[in-house]
Design a protein around this nucleic acid. Structure first.
Length: 569
DNA sequence: GCCGTTTTCGGCCCGACTGTTTTCAGTCG
């Protein structure tokens, strides 16, 4: 059982309790525990062996016992009991915007609704409007949002799939005779959301390994089964597609499995023109000779082009560029010198300032900006001027002890509804890094929102606009915004736009990053970490940048500290 | 359920917006 899976059990219990509505603080304790567990660096199974689960903040006697129960048995009696009271399908109703726990409960109790499908029927039959606190508008909103949910969020977040996938890869790789297990498909291409988890393994005993996955404790259903392939559903609703090939075919098979389909078809066409047969088993020339393929780069070499990294394999011009030898040298994680948007316990994060610094140093960064929230964001315990001053003093002291590392002072300053900032200019002027972001009044019309953000861009102390469109993947689309205007203003006023690397956001996305860069906007890749583990999310942002064809020169935080400080406003 | 403590129970993040009301509950960030 991976931490993320144990966290999901608590998360689901919290959701169920919230809908039940009987025990707010128990609900919150479960929710908090889930959050903490996801953030843990060490597997709970290991912590259990060391008998140190109880040391985790927010884990007391009861939750400790439940964790041990889940580790030992794979599930938890309280969870099962809750599911008997509230069917799992009710939880998906709660996901609709504007529908919280109370309305979900009313729909369940008064109308017996236990799925989105049933809710759609009830809304169409005008039953919802008869309930207290609901009207014809609620009804039409429900129908509209169900439609959006249907078309958009069938896919899973890349972050979830990669984290869970890593556990399954380790599980499969431990099986004797397995020489390789890797991500394939859109997961390997780092698409922001993925329909299923593609895995590919090399072994000379395919049937045995397919069975290993089929019998995995959290696999609930076998969807398809072939000689060299199995498609299964796990208990978290994730489809896992495992292909198994002999070791000698691994590279060609992995390459095909990675796709994209369009990219692969385009390559095949080029191969045919050169009288080469390319398939998942081998590359064969017109004389029937097998061409040597030790790595994927060999495949491209045989087709007279430079290696194309998985992130670019979408048939968006990368093949033409590789043939011409004109593929850019993409930015890499190791090019990143520091993170310019992070939070600490001073506002709403889980890790203290020194802890964040320590982890940033361990990553080999040379700087880290601390950008906690500004005062109007009460829910996030935003810092007023006095506390910000105090924090700056703590940072000063830390810096005096550091040799080759610099902690930068900063703020993630709210852009208020009228476009003004949550701190006066005098305060912003004293900070090293000012990130300005929108956290409130999402419903403004497009022009108001655009003007609001441009006002921040124009401010002479704002260095970076954080999570530019405000979208949350699978939960909420971004606010109405004229991005072309925003990009033009950012270019004009030398304000940097962020790729927010949190897998929940990935905002800017690939397409917008590309457009922004083409218009001359400088890009920064930030984690927006709210805990030490969150600093690792930067790789998701780097993937977005790579998919947008960015080089290290396009990215602000690949700069050494001196250059960075010159570049900031 | 957890935590802290003035040790064994009281307190636990806040404020605004929205839609449905007609004075406020529910939702959201």
């Amino acid at each position: 059982m991976q931490n993320i899976e144990i966290a999901w059990v608590f998360e689901e219990m919290a959701d169920l309790l919230e809908i039940k509505g009987t025990d707010f603080f128990k609900m919150r304790a479960y929710r908090q525990a889930a959050k903490t567990i996801v953030r843990l660096e060490q597997p709970l199974a290991e912590l259990a062996k060391q008998n140190s689960i109880h040391k985790i903040a927010g884990v007391g006697k009861a939750i400790n016992a439940k964790i041990k129960e889940i580790l030992a048995t794979g599930s938890c009696a309280t969870h099962r009991k809750l599911l008997l009271e509230i069917p799992k399908g009710v939880l998906e109703i709660r996901l609709l915007p504007g529908i919280g726990p109370k309305k979900t409960r009313t729909l369940f109790e008064d109308l017996g609704i236990t799925s989105l499908a049933q809710l759609a029927v009830a809304a169409k039959n005008r039953l919802v409007r008869q309930l207290p606190g609901m009207s014809t508008k609620t009804e039409s909103d429900i129908l509209r949002h169900i439609q959006v949910l249907k078309t958009s969020s069938q896919k899973k977040s890349l972050g979830v799939v990669r984290e869970l996938g890593a556990g399954i890869i380790a599980y499969l790789a431990a099986f004797p005779g397995v020489t390789a297990v890797e991500f394939g498909g859109s997961t390997r291409r780092w698409q922001e959301t993925v329909a299923d988890l593609d895995l590919i393994a090399a072994t000379n005993h395919p049937q045995e390994l397919l069975e290993v996955l089929s019998k995995h404790p959290r696999v609930t259903k076998i969807l398809e089964q072939g000689e060299n392939r199995v498609r299964v559903l796990n208990q978290w609703g994730i489809v896992i597609d495992l292909s198994v090939v002999p070791a000698a075919q691994f590279i060609t098979a992995w390459h095909r499995n990675t796709g994209s389909q369009k990219h692969y078809q385009h390559l095949k066409k080029l191969a045919i023109e050169k009288n080469i047969t390319l398939d998942h088993q081998a590359m064969i020339d017109d004389c029937g000779n097998k061409l040597a393929v030790q790595t994927e780069a060999d495949i491209y070499r045989h087709l007279n082009m430079t290696y194309i990294p998985p992130e670019l394999r979408e048939d968006h011009g990368e093949i033409e560029a590789a043939l011409a030898g004109k593929l850019p040298e993409l930015v890499e994680l190791k090019d990143i010198k520091g993170d310019l948007h992070t939070h600490t316990t001073w506002s709403d994060a889980a890790a203290s300032l020194p802890e964040m610094v320590q982890v940033a140093q361990a990553k080999g960064y040379s700087y880290l900006a601390i950008t906690d929230h500004s005062p109007s964001l009460k829910v996030a315990n935003g810092l007023d001027w006095e506390r910000l001053q105090e924090q700056c003093r703590e940072i000063d002291q830390l810096n005096q002890r550091e040799q080759d590392f610099t902690v930068l002072t900063g703020v993630e300053c709210d852009i208020l509804a009228d476009g003004s900032l949550d701190h006066p200019d005098e305060v912003l002027a004293d900070l090293d890094v000012v990130v300005a972001s929108v956290h409130t009044n999402f419903q403004q019309d497009q022009q108001t929102m655009t003007n609001r953000i441009i006002a921040a861009i124009e401010n002479e102390y704002v260095d970076i606009i954080g999570h530019v469109t405000g979208r949350l993947l699978g939960r909420r689309s971004g606010y109405a915004l004229d991005l072309a205007e925003v990009f033009a203003a950012a270019a004009k006023y030398d304000t940097v736009l962020e790729i927010n690397a949190s897998p929940h956001r990935l905002d800017l996305n690939t397409e917008n990053t590309k457009k922004a860069r083409e218009l001359g906007v400088q890009i920064v890749i930030n984690s927006d970490a709210h805990d030490a583990k969150g600093l690792n999310d930067l790789e998701y942002g780097v993937a977005v940048a790579r998919r947008a064809w960015l080089t290290s020169g396009d990215v602000l935080n690949t700069m050494a500290l001196d250059d960075l400080l010159k570049s900031l406003k």
